[in-house]
């Protein structure tokens, strides 16, 4: 009696997602954009983290749990970027569909090669990620590559629209391919950058722009006076720019500006929730302009 009741309920649940839009809870706005870009009309996307703060340091909020409770799928950056809140939010959502290991759990970082994989898991080295640097979304080519993987995954929810998902992924890859050569060309003579955190490494690697250092002495540890002094001593007489994200404190960057005259750029990393692909390309464009700053 009970089994038949539960079995019937299972059938009902299994039947539901096929008929409706695929409800996606995305962690960051960029991942939400990727889901929208690949899923098109077939998906309904909720973004859990805002664009103007560090996805590392968020706290699980009840609204995240509510979004995950209603979702068919969670689309995250992965590689422990959201480890401080996503597992707790998933636990609080009591929704087996979005748990790790299920088809409704998607980590972008799993579907592209990461920088810095396999570093020592030693917190004396700061807030390290042995799984690799999670910020792959700053490299448009990797972003598009993950889009292909997402198309594969979405196809498993709605096979009828699989071709559409793959076409969307191909369009994204084409749009990226169209822009990358010009960006690389523009950045050819870029003298190099100092970043606040290891969060734009992928883009710098894609543009072949050398990274001269980080304002953080260790990942996750705020800049210290002695570390900044070392940076300044090492970079005296060199050319370059300092880039930090707009939610990261500016004082370290301004210190470098005062000491060695490098221009400082405070840039966004995520699009505003709901913005389109052009907004994403605009952000990349801003980084290209920053590294080619004529004052550098």
């Amino acid at each position: 009696m009970r089994t038949s009741w539960i079995g019937g309920f299972a059938l009902l649940l299994a039947a539901l997602p096929a008929a409706a839009e695929i409800r996606i809870a995305a962690t960051t706005p960029n991942m939400g954009l990727l889901a929208e870009t690949i899923g098109g009309d077939a998906v309904d996307v909720t973004v859990m983290a805002p664009h103007d703060r560090d996805a590392h340091y968020l706290e699980a909020r009840p609204s995240m749990m509510a979004a995950l409770r209603r979702a068919d799928m969670v689309v995250s950056v992965g590689a422990e970027l959201e480890v401080g809140w996503l597992p707790a939010a998933i636990d609080g959502a009591a929704n087996p569909d979005v748990r790790a290991g299920g088809r409704g759990y998607f980590e972008g970082a799993r579907h592209t090669d990461l920088i810095g994989v396999g570093g020592a898991a030693d917190r004396a080295q700061g807030d390290v990620h042995p799984e690799g640097n999670p910020h792959f979304y700053m490299d448009p080519e990797r972003f598009a590559e993950v889009g292909e993987a997402l198309a594969d995954r979405l196809a498993r929810f709605d096979e009828d629209r699989a071709d559409g998902f793959h076409a969307n992924a191909a369009d994204l890859a084409a749009a990226v391919d169209e822009r990358m050569p010009a960006w690389r060309e523009a950045a050819t003579d870029a003298p190099g950058v100092v970043l606040y955190h290891e969060d734009s490494d992928y883009l710098m690697a894609a543009l072949n722009v050398p990274i001269h250092g980080f304002l953080e002495p260790l990942p996750g540890v705020p800049p210290t006076a002695s570390h900044l002094r070392e940076l300044v001593d090492g970079l005296q007489g060199e050319r370059g720019v300092v880039i930090h994200r707009n939610y990261q404190p500016a004082d370290g960057a301004e210190f470098l500006q005062r000491e060695i005259g490098w221009p400082v750029h405070s840039l966004p990393a995520d699009i505003e929730p709901g913005a389109d692909l052009d907004a994403y390309f605009d952000i990349i464009e801003q980084y290209v302009e920053a590294v080619t700053d004529p004052d550098a």
């Binding site: 422990e80 088809r103 759990y105 980590e107 042995p130 799984e131």
Partner: peptide, 8 residues
């Protein structure tokens, strides 16, 4: 499938 749960 392998769990990609963010921690190994």
């Amino acid at each position: 499938m392998p769990i990609d749960s963010g921690t190994a």
